[in-house]
Computed example of a mutant assay.
Amino acid sequence: MSSKLVIRQPQPVMDSRDSEEWGSGICDCCDDVPECCFAFWCCPCFACITTKAYGQCLCLPLLDIFGAIPPITMSMRVSMRQRYGIKGTMCRDCVYATCCTSCTWCQMSREMKRRKIPIVLVSAKNT
């Protein structure tokens, strides 16, 4: 009996089902007031929860504490733009991550809820 080892897994394709713009602006906190309040008063907790919902490590945003520019916030924003096909620049992502951290996390959370694209983790196995 022989087994076949799959060396190359098919890569998931993310289709952008919506526009190439963010579903809400960086300061549209009134779209979800309780979420905005949570992000404002406890941004590290909110960022961790949002990161986990995005499919990344729960504690990843805590690394932002060590830099002048929050690298995780910026990376998550860039990743989300790429995943959902949203136009933008890394310069703008850097400015928002540095100057408007709570608003940035709120905007990303709203975008995830709006797009509702499930995260699918694929594991390799012998066939």
Rank of each mutant, 00 (worst) to 15 (best):
I26Y: 02
M80L: 15
G25C: 10
Y54T: 06
G85E: 04
K87E: 09
V78S: 04
C99P: 00
S19R: 15
S79V: 01
C43S: 10
S24C: 15
P118Y: 07
I117D: 05
L121A: 12
C106V: 14
V120Q: 13
Q82L: 11
Y84I: 01
L121T: 13
D31I: 11
M80I: 11
T89M: 07
C45Q: 09
D93C: 14
C36P: 00
C36E: 01
R83S: 07
V78P: 00
C57A: 15
C100T: 03
C91G: 08
G67R: 12
S3N: 08
I65K: 13
R83C: 04
G85R: 03
T104Y: 02
C45T: 10
M1T: 08
D64P: 01
C45I: 11
E111D: 13
L60R: 09
K87L: 06
I26P: 00
M108S: 04
F40N: 05
G85M: 05
C106S: 12
C29D: 04
G23M: 08
I7W: 04
C100S: 05
S79N: 12
W105Q: 07
V13I: 15
Q82V: 09
R114G: 03
G23K: 04
S16D: 13
S123I: 08
C103K: 05
K116D: 15
K87Y: 05
V78R: 05
C48E: 07
G25R: 08
R110N: 08
W41P: 00
A68G: 04
G55Y: 01
R17S: 14
T51Y: 02
L60S: 11
D64V: 03
I69W: 06
T73F: 02
V33L: 15
C94M: 14
K116E: 13
K125Y: 10
E111H: 13
K116R: 15
I119F: 09
P61E: 04
P61D: 02
I49Q: 04
T73V: 05
P61Y: 01
M112H: 08
T98E: 02
Y84G: 00
E35N: 14
R115T: 05
E20S: 14
T101H: 08
T98S: 14
T104L: 04
V95Y: 11
P71C: 06
S123C: 09
V13A: 12
K125W: 04
L58V: 07
C106Q: 10
T51Q: 03
P118W: 09
Q56F: 07
C27W: 14
L58E: 09
